[in-house]
């Protein structure tokens, strides 16, 4: 038997439609979310008793549907369950007739625009304020945006650190070639040819490296998403590798690779070839 907790925090859903308020039946129907279904082992058609708290008189209900949560980051950390029931049912159950926090109004697909609907509600209904769902989502995800910025800062630090690392590695790698560069110079290969070859190689390595990094990123974020979507039972994507990110990373590493290659190669070809080969 089910005891739904914290019913006061539940959001009532007002269903509009030709049928109006659902007809009285011996078993009132509710919908529950996936999390609750999984935790309580309920499926559609199951019966349960819904009460406002332990020991409170309950009401027998039938599970009419299981809902999947939207990808709302502000709900990730909340471990609560969600039950949807008809407004009159909620009022009867809680014994509070006029304490509704907010309504969600769904518009039919072909209906007038959400904006004009909201405007009309705001003009007609005193004491109400209508917002578009998207605006509400933005407002409630303020915390998420702070976290997002924090993650971005970590990302930038990572990129800067690996860029310096890449720069140093390239300088070292080119310096490993000092003997070869010296030999080429002795044979009459021009400075320009050597610099071009080094830069081309650095550019190639940078691009291939970034693409390999992007592939790794895709794999890792798929793994992270799979794991945390399971933990929080949400369709929210926690890690995303967008084409924009891949393009940025490739361009950055290409620029750095070319600059590092150019600096390292120019430093080498300026030295006398006999010094480079260490005679």
């Amino acid at each position: 038997m089910l005891k739904a907790r914290r019913l006061g925090a539940l959001l009532a859903a007002l269903v509009l439609g030709p049928g109006g308020v659902a007809a009285q039946a011996p078993w009132r129907s509710i919908t529950i979310d996936e999390r609750l279904a999984a935790a309580a082992g309920l499926t559609v058609g199951d019966r349960a008793v819904l009460a406002t708290g332990a020991g409170a008189p309950g009401d027998s209900v039938i599970v009419a549907g299981i809902t999947r949560r939207g990808a709302d980051p502000s709900e990730i950390a909340r471990s609560e369950f969600r039950v949807r029931l008809h407004l009159d049912h909620l009022q009867a159950l809680t014994g509070v007739g006029d304490r509704v926090g907010r309504f969600a109004v769904a518009t039919a697909p072909a209906a007038a625009s959400v904006d004009s609907a909201a405007a009309r509600i705001n003009a007609l209904a005193f004491g109400f304020r209508a917002y578009r769902a998207a605006d509400v989502a933005i407002e409630t995800s303020a915390t998420f945006r702070v976290v997002n910025r924090f993650h971005r800062a970590i990302g930038v630090i990572t990129i800067v650190a690996s860029a310096i690392f890449l720069l140093c590695i390239t300088l070292l790698k080119v310096d490993e070639r000092r003997r070869d560069v010296g030999a080429l110079r002795l044979l009459g290969i021009s400075r320009g040819t050597i610099v071009r070859a080094v830069v081309l190689e650095a550019a190639l390595i940078s691009v291939v490296g970034s693409l390999m990094g992007a592939a790794l990123g895709y794999g890792a974020s798929a793994l992270v998403n799979w794991h945390y979507q399971g933990v929080y039972s949400t369709p929210l994507r926690f890690a995303i590798v967008t084409p924009g990110i891949v393009a940025f990373a490739t361009l950055l590493s290409l620029t750095l690779g070319v600059v590092a290659g150019l600096l390292a190669a120019q430093r080498l070809v300026r030295q006398p070839p006999l010094e480079l080969v260490g005679r």
Binding site: R185, L186, L187, G188, I189, S190, R191
Partner: peptide, 14 residues
């Protein structure tokens, strides 16, 4: 330096 490099390339075998 550039002329000497070119000369080594075509005039001398090492």
């Amino acid at each position: 330096d550039a002329e000497a490099t070119r000369f080594r390339l075509t005039g001398i075998g090492f």
